[in-house]
Design a protein around this nucleic acid. Structure first.
Length: 849
RNA sequence: GCCGGAGUGGCGGAAUGGCAGACGCAGGGGACUCAAAAUCCCCCAUCCUACGGGAUAUGAGGGUUCGACUCCCUCCUCCGGCACCA
């Protein structure tokens, strides 16, 4: 190594300092500065700053957005590209207990680590806009939005069944519970009715579904949201109880099968259960209900398990034919969907069939299955049978007919039902947003006036729930808990806190105007910047975060606070970065440094010589395969790290990290360096000339092709092929006898969004003035992207047999003549006349014989 | 079970109706060097070859087409999501 070779360790901190000192990436926020330029809002899903720090998966998406942000700036856009912290959450609270620190201190420490690691990569975030959801400056506005929701009747309290973990003293989210235990600790979880805050997201179900049409998102994510919302069309049907003056309603998507309803089933929690159960059945029913209510919904909804249930002794009357049918209770009917009651049609529903078989209930087919049908319940189409006035109709026609019939007699009505449920919005935790709500001593729930915000978190000495099961905030003293309202009433503060999703539901709006002390964001900023043009993040947020944020956004739209119906115009999911892990026969994992790989594919443990298996897996501490970005930057530099993240493969797929690949892009950067710098002297490369670009016509063409490809591929997030093209260019430039400066500086501008530090350094050494970050993005010359002579493939019967160089504008007749006169073709034709000749201008000639 | 996505050299991948394997990694050979590293040049899917070339090949099988990694049908494998939602 010579003194003047490429050394990222010196140039990278140097340029990061320059960018920071000059506020190079400050986004304008004065209307005058904004006017006249198009805008581009490009956003990363901001991270939860965990104690573990960054791993190489995080910067993948961040690098992609940074490359685009830098290119867009050079193309003359005002770019909003911010970063912040989703900083409330349970892990910090647990660490706080463990280390006897305040969660805010833990969070601040983690944020510092994340910020330092992110800044080492040279991202062009406007750090003056950094936000932190756990800061009172931020969460006062989260509380403010909650008040908006409350005002509109979208926030309410209800007794709902929740996953209660006695060991932790808190409610857990469904996704934190599996097989009846908390996934992290294995502590048992029970279902309990608790008074909780709920958000009425179901009121927006239809708009959340319909407006998916308006956004440019991956089809898979839209489909996941559609499934989650789960719209189904059908009818509510009213059943009368036999011998009583009461009715109950069922929801069905198959009203056409009503004549085949041979029994009804109520959910164990259904309010009618207690009333209708006969004395003879009471003990059995009570036992069943108690057991069912005790198990979690997750355990209950295991489709594979056998059907269970009990007869109530009561009967209902089928409204279409007056048949008396038994009413059962079974846990396969869920209280939380539809009406909590169903009519069972075993002939057309496999679940009902299974239940009917298990308990010896009758089965009547009402749709004629095809003659060769040998299944059980028949779900396909066919003529209605055993259905009186519906007989012979198709499913669709029968549905229409029966719904009309029911509606005329007021025995039912058309109904759209959603699977989506209201959002359980409170947690019994400390490290979250307090609700801007108090409970007056007279029992009323009172939202606080806006100018009382923020409701800060009180200092308490322990973050666990109280002994009697109240949330940690109940440990606060009366100076926090007790409030005197403006009207003189005394009240106690709400002690639940909001879930972690709350802060991330609107952070993209705070970024517009993060230092605004008077309002959550200014209307002008919102009108200028929204919507987010490109939102990049992991697919793990496909449903919850993205659905919750869309919901809040629509509410804000209804409040007149935002002007777009959807917040995120385009969404892109980057694939996960995986890593090789090494395991021995006993399943013990080995760190890559304890492993030797041989050419023949064998992998051995260095210490013992034992044969190991290698596999590609998700990075995790326990698998000893986590790659730390600091380590990569120490060895190869941030530019190489960025470039490799983009070069690994398509952004959207998951792919393994390979340290050898980083070496490869590092070599590429060294070649770029040597194009400009003479490594021995440190002076400029003697190949550089002031001659015009046209003095190296071949290289000039290569450059313009590169401009075109890099511009296109970067905009469409195909960074891997953009980089491949730049490598091709550099290989040619290295081989070229002279190197016009003009070509060199144009190329550096293309590379600068990907590897900004080295490009700033070389730009300065070439004495181009200002920063390359402020340079204009090059535009390709179409004429120079086409070669004068193009290769034409000659095929015989679709197989390549020859290749000719022909002028690029040769017409079809010329191509055909040239092809037929090819010696190799003549040999293959052996004098036979071609039956047909297909000519594709500029590409190939196919001769068919 | 249902709904998505993907299967291409030793590895990551490229080509979305027109030259399969761009670019990179790994590997082989050579130049430079006292030597090594670095760098530069060449080779590198498989099989056959009289060294001109030929045959085979994109998970498997079929189809459409002058021509298919690409479009259609059937199947296999892997990954992700949902899963008694009436």
């Amino acid at each position: 190594m010579t003194d003047h070779s490429y050394d990222p360790a010196t140039i990278e901190p140097k340029w990061q300092r320059v960018w920071q000192e000059r506020k190079t990436f400050r986004t304008p926020n004065q209307p005058a500065e904004l006017a006249g330029r198009p805008k581009f809002y490009i956003l990363d899903m901001f991270p939860y700053p965990s104690g573990a720090g960054l791993h190489v998966g995080h910067p993948e998406g961040y690098t992609a957005t940074d490359v685009i942000a830098r290119m867009k700036r050079m193309q003359g856009f005002n770019v909003l590209h911010p970063m912040g912290w989703d900083a409330f959450g349970l892990p910090a609270e647990r660490a706080a207990v463990r280390e006897s620190l305040h969660p805010a201190e833990i969070t601040a420490r983690n944020v510092d680590t994340f910020r330092r690691q992110i800044q080492r990569l040279g991202f062009s975030y406007d750090w003056d806009r950094e936000i932190n959801t756990s800061s009172p400056d931020y969460y006062r506005w989260t509380q403010w939005i909650f008040l908006k929701l409350h005002e509109r009747g979208l926030a309410y309290m209800a007794d709902v069944p929740v996953n209660w973990c006695p060991a932790l003293g808190t409610v857990l989210a469904n996704e934190e519970v599996k097989d009846g235990v908390y996934v992290e600790t294995g502590d048992p979880v029970e279902r309990r009715l608790m008074r909780q805050w709920m958000l009425r997201i179901t009121a927006y179900a239809e708009r959340l579904l319909d407006d998916l049409e308006l956004v440019d998102w991956p089809e898979s994510v839209k489909e996941m949201q559609r499934n989650w919302i789960g719209r189904s069309e059908g009818a509510d049907v009213v059943f009368r109880l036999d011998g009583r003056d009461e009715t109950f309603t069922v929801f069905t998507t198959r009203p056409d099968t009503l004549f085949g309803a041979t029994y009804c089933v109520l959910a164990p929690e259904h309010p009618l259960v207690e009333a209708i159960t006969t004395d003879a059945q009471r003990d059995q029913v009570r036992r069943y209900v108690t057991e069912a209510i005790g198990t979690t919904e997750v355990a209950r909804s295991d489709a594979a398990k056998d059907k269970t249930g009990v007869f109530t002794g009561a009967h209902a009357v089928n409204p279409v034919n007056g048949e008396r049918i038994p009413i059962w209770i079974a846990d396969y009917v869920l209280m939380s969907y539809g009406t909590g009651a169903i009519m069972a049609v075993p002939g057309q529903d496999q679940r009902d069939w299974d239940f009917a078989v298990a308990f010896g209930l009758p089965i009547i087919r009402t749709v004629e299955p095809p003659p060769d049908f040998d299944g059980q319940a028949y779900l396909g189409d066919g003529p209605a049978i055993n259905s009186s006035f519906l007989d012979g109709l198709t499913i669709e026609d029968a549905k229409r007919r029966i719904i009309d019939w029911l509606e005329e007699r007021q025995l039912g009505r058309r109904k759209v039902q959603y699977k989506l449920r209201d959002w359980l919005f409170s947690r019994q935790r400390y490290w979250g947003e307090p609700f801007p709500i108090v409970h007056a001593d007279d029992g009323t729930v009172v939202p606080l006036p806006e100018d009382w915000l923020p409701v800060g978190l009180p200092a308490i000495d322990e973050y666990r729930p109280t002994e009697d099961g109240r949330p940690p905030l109940a440990r606060a003293g009366d100076d926090w808990l007790r409030v005197t309202l403006p009207d003189g009433r005394a009240a106690t503060r709400e002690t639940n806190t909001m879930p972690q999703w709350a802060g991330s539901c609107w952070y993209y709006l705070r970024f517009l105007d993060p230092n605004n002390q008077r309002e959550a964001w200014s209307a002008e900023a919102e009108r200028y910047w929204m919507p987010v043009d490109l939102y990049v993040g992991g697919v793990e947020h496909a449903v919850l975060h993205l659905l919750y944020a869309r919901f809040w956004h629509k509410v804000l739209y209804d409040c007149g606070l935002v002007h777009t119906v959807e917040p995120f115009q385009r969404l892109f999911n980057q694939g996960m970065v995986l890593a090789y892990s090494y395991r021995d026969a006993r399943g013990r994992y080995y760190h890559p440094s304890e492993v030797e790989e041989y050419e023949d594919g064998r992998v051995l443990a260095v210490a013992t010589g034992e044969a190991l298996t290698s596999q590609v897996e998700k990075m995790s501490k326990s698998k000893l395969n986590v790659v730390n970005p600091d380590e990569v930057i120490d060895r190869y530099g941030a530019d190489a790290m960025r470039l490799y993240e983009m070069f690994m493969g398509p952004l959207e797929v998951q792919k393994p990290w390979q340290m050898k690949g980083v070496e490869g892009v590092n070599r590429f950067l060294q070649r770029v360096w040597r194009l400009v710098v003479d490594e021995r002297s440190g002076e400029l490369n003697l190949k550089l000339t002031d001659a015009p670009a046209g003095s190296e016509p071949e290289l000039e063409r290569a450059l313009h092709k590169t401009v075109q490809k890099v511009t296109e591929d970067t905009a469409t997030l195909r960074m891997n092929t953009a980089i491949a093209q730049m490598m091709i260019f550099v290989n040619q430039a290295t081989a070229s006898a002279t190197l016009p400066r003009d070509i060199t500086t144009t190329f550096l501008r293309l590379l600068s969004p990907y590897a900004p530090h080295i490009c700033e350094e070389l730009w300065q050494r070439l004495d181009e003035g200002d920063l390359i970050a402020h340079a204009r993005w090059p535009i390709h010359n179409e004429a120079l992207c086409l070669d004068d002579m193009v290769p034409i493939v000659i095929q015989v019967n679709g197989k390549k047999r020859d290749e000719l160089q022909v002028p690029k504008d040769a017409d079809n007749a010329t191509l055909e003549r040239l092809a037929l006169s090819s010696e190799r073709v003549a040999k293959l034709l052996e004098g036979r006349a071609p039956r047909r000749v297909i000519v594709v201008a500029g590409r190939l000639v196919n001769i068919v014989v």
